[in-house]
Simulated assay, not measured.
Amino acid sequence: MKYSTIHLAIFIERSNRFIARCRLIHTGEEIVTHVKNTGRSKELLLPSALVAVNHQPSDKRKTAYDLIAVKKGEMWINIDSQIPNALAAEGILAGDIKLPGLKGTINFLKREYTYERSKFDIYFETDQQEKGFVEVKGMTLENHGIGAFPDAPTLRGLKHVEELRLAQTMGYHSYVLFIVQFPTITAATIHRVMQPALYEAVKMAVADGVQVLAYNCEVDQETITIKGAVPFDLEQAFIDPNL
């Protein structure tokens, strides 16, 4: 995935969940940007942080820029919450993302598929009459090489895990896929301190056969690409840099 018109800027402040103020490096102009992630991102969106903004002016928009990436140390972290689903669908179809346990080859994939009370990110079928769901979650929270989800409690995420567990018992192949939106990581996990209920739900889902996968990405200020599978460890300790 490559963004069309990227500019580097200095982060000033986040006015609310959706809006931030930044200063363009090449002109010194102060701009208002749309933050494409409703998570907290407190450890990333710090005053004077180097950020990447995508210039997308339109009469239908309130802002002309999207804030899509932040530099943390030497590493760029993409925070665009719309990117993981697209990367996941393309990666699965291209074979860059493997779904363990399938006997056949995926020959049909549909995004945003409604099942029971949930709308899962991906529904697929194989040439061996297998069917399944993939729920995709972007991961941007990192500390000491460990990635964790979520960075804020998510009732929607909890509901999806519970319904994936139900789908698994009904004969579907069910997966939670974390797209880690940064490159340097040794393991991914659930932030159990942030949301103990999600940790318990994932633990029960895994016991019932739901598989949890994590893939990290190569990221710079204007591109993001699937890199490879990384270990997911539900019991991995994680120290929240914001607590």
Rank of each mutant, 00 (worst) to 15 (best):
S58E: 07
D59S: 07
K60H: 09
R61E: 06
R61K: 12
K62V: 08
K62C: 07
T63N: 07
A64W: 04
A64I: 02
A64L: 07
Y65I: 01
I68E: 03
A69T: 03
V70K: 01
V70E: 01
K71R: 14
K71I: 02
K71V: 02
E74C: 05
M75D: 05
M75C: 03
W76I: 02
W76N: 00
I77S: 02
I77W: 01
N78S: 06
N78E: 04
N78V: 04
I79K: 00
D80F: 03
D80Y: 03
Q82S: 13
P84Q: 11
P84D: 09
N85K: 15
A86G: 12
A88Y: 10
A88G: 10
E90A: 15
E90D: 15
G91E: 09
G91F: 11
L93R: 13
D96F: 12
I97E: 11
K98S: 15
P100N: 12
G101M: 09
L102N: 09
K103F: 08
K103C: 10
G104A: 10
T105Y: 12
T105A: 13
T105G: 08
T105I: 15
T105C: 09
I106Y: 04
N107F: 10
F108R: 15
F108W: 11
F108M: 13
L109Q: 13
L109I: 15
K110I: 14
R111S: 13
E112S: 15
E112P: 10
T114D: 12
Y115F: 15
E116D: 14
S118A: 14
S118M: 09
S118H: 06
F120A: 10
F120M: 11
F120D: 11
D121L: 08
D121A: 09
I122P: 12
Y123M: 09
F124A: 05
E125K: 10
E125R: 11
T126H: 03
T126M: 05
D127P: 05
E130C: 06
V134N: 02
V134P: 03
E135C: 01
E135A: 04
V136D: 03
K137A: 10
K137N: 11
K137L: 07
G138H: 04
G138C: 01
G138V: 05
M139Y: 00
T140A: 08
T140Y: 03
T140C: 07
L141A: 03
E142T: 10
E142L: 06
E142G: 00
N143P: 00
N143R: 04
H144F: 04
I146V: 14
I146K: 02
I146Q: 00
G147H: 02
F149M: 06
